[in-house]
């Protein structure tokens, strides 16, 4: 008998983006997330569970259920 998680083969997953919950398609990459959110990719940095993910790794970084994504840019500051 299949266990619960297999029974509901996840087509979507919940992640956290900048502290807000977000339901996205399973298999979405970090790069895909930025596309989905219509965010610029220049002047931007991303961290996954508090670890910086270099830009060259964005496409191959596939997000997983429950992960915390931080997408940052510059803002006013002394």
């Amino acid at each position: 008998m299949e266990n619960t998680t297999q029974q509901f083969a996840p087509e979507t997953m919940n992640i956290w983006v900048n502290g807000e919950p977000k339901l996205i398609s399973a298999g979405t990459s970090l790069d895909g997330l930025l596309d989905l959110l219509k965010l610029p990719k220049v002047g931007v940095a991303a961290a996954l569970d508090a670890e910086v993910v270099h830009k060259r790794m964005w496409t191959e970084t596939i997000l997983a259920e429950g992960q915390r994504v931080e997408i940052l840019t510059i803002s006013q500051g002394g």
């Binding site: 997408i71 840019t73 510059i74």
Partner: peptide, 17 residues
């Protein structure tokens, strides 16, 4: 100098960057 903060959609305005 600038700070590093969570990105917000800028809408139609030009971003600081």
């Amino acid at each position: 100098t600038v700070a590093i903060r969570r990105i917000k959609p800028t809408g139609s305005g030009q971003s600081l960057y």
